[in-house]
Design a binder for these strands. Structure first.
Length: 287
DNA sequence: AGATCGCCCTGCTTGC
DNA sequence: TGCAAGCAGGGCGATC
């Protein structure tokens, strides 16, 4: 499932292949794909028609395409299974094609939103003074944002009465970290997912942030290659499927540091993967 | 008001 | 072999 690095790969692909083009027609093939656009599919389509796409932007796992000639932006979230594809117009429709956007030029390609599980979607929103779609004003900056405030994040951890993995998945504290990268970063930092955040020292927070950035940048480096090719460019798959993971999905496999079998624990209706030796649980907390 | 939990959705895997 | 349950899980709204 796409997390920050995969979404950034998609953003770059859209910047290369979609920014600057003018929309002529929008087809909404599944209402759930525009459920965040409260006025509905026909309104979504009508309000895009004739507008030029600006430079794509991203925060966390959200990306958006500002309309160059209006104060609005197309907001996109890929959810669990969403893809934004730039396809030849004559390519057959994908099985789970939800939205099609056509352009007025001679490039011969169109933008397609394809999403099997329909957790993702597109919607149109007004933007705040800094260009952010108004409905994601509560989403914190992500750790790859140059303006991310490490000290504010640390103070946020200290203030919260929660545990570290919950905090990492709280998109209003830090955005772009999902279940996979949370487990990867905690493994690298040798931290158990149930560690209380209130006792974090500044060096511990700094080290954890470093691991989060390292693992994201490594994934981005893999996914961000071969940007000349349209195919690799816009679906982001090359980075996603070849990603080397140290923790996520490695139940019963040896820890790459100490060889101890990795464990999986049910957690918040999903799973946490960790090394029982490298990542000791806090005292008086069931592991 | 901050923290937690249920729900949305489909296809693949697992187990009886 | 067939069916049902389990699992994947981000984000939002309801609830405590």
């Amino acid at each position: 499932m796409p997390e920050l690095p995969e979404v950034e790969v998609v953003r770059r692909g859209l910047e290369r292949w979609v920014s600057g083009r003018v929309v002529t027609e929008v087809e909404v093939l599944h209402p759930r794909a525009v459920r965040r656009h409260l006025a509905g599919g026909p309104d979504f389509a009508a309000r895009l028609k004739g507008h030029r796409i600006g430079v794509t932007r991203r925060r966390g796992k959200y990306l958006w395409l500002p309309l160059a000639d209006s104060p609005n932006a197309i907001l996109a979230h890929l959810g669990m299974s969403g893809q934004l594809l730039v396809q030849p117009e004559e390519a057959p429709d994908e099985k789970h094609l939800r939205i099609r956007v056509r352009f007025d030029d001679d490039q011969g390609t169109e933008l397609r939103f394809v999403d099997q599980r329909t957790f993702g979607g597109l919607s149109l929103h007004g933007t705040t003074a800094d260009g952010l779609p108004d409905v994601i004003a509560h989403i914190a900056r992500d750790p790859l944002d140059p303006a991310f405030d490490d000290e504010a994040f640390h103070q946020g951890l200290r203030r919260s009465r929660t545990t570290i993995k919950r905090a990492l998945l709280n998109q209003s504290l830090i955005s772009g970290v999902g279940n996979i990268y949370a487990d990867e970063a905690l493994w690298r930092a040798k931290l158990h997912y149930e560690r209380p955040t209130a006792t974090f020292t500044r060096p511990r927070t700094t080290e954890l942030l470093g691991h989060i950035r390292d693992v994201m940048n490594a994934a981005l480096a893999v996914g961000g290659t071969s940007f000349d090719s349209l195919y690799v460019n816009v679906n982001g798959e090359s980075g996603y499927f070849e990603r080397a993971l140290d923790a996520y999905g490695r139940e019963d496999e040896p820890c790459r540091r100490c060889g101890t079998p990795m464990r999986r624990r049910p957690w918040m209706n999903r799973s946490s993967y960790f090394c029982p030796r490298c990542q000791r649980p806090p005292r008086a907390t069931p592991s």
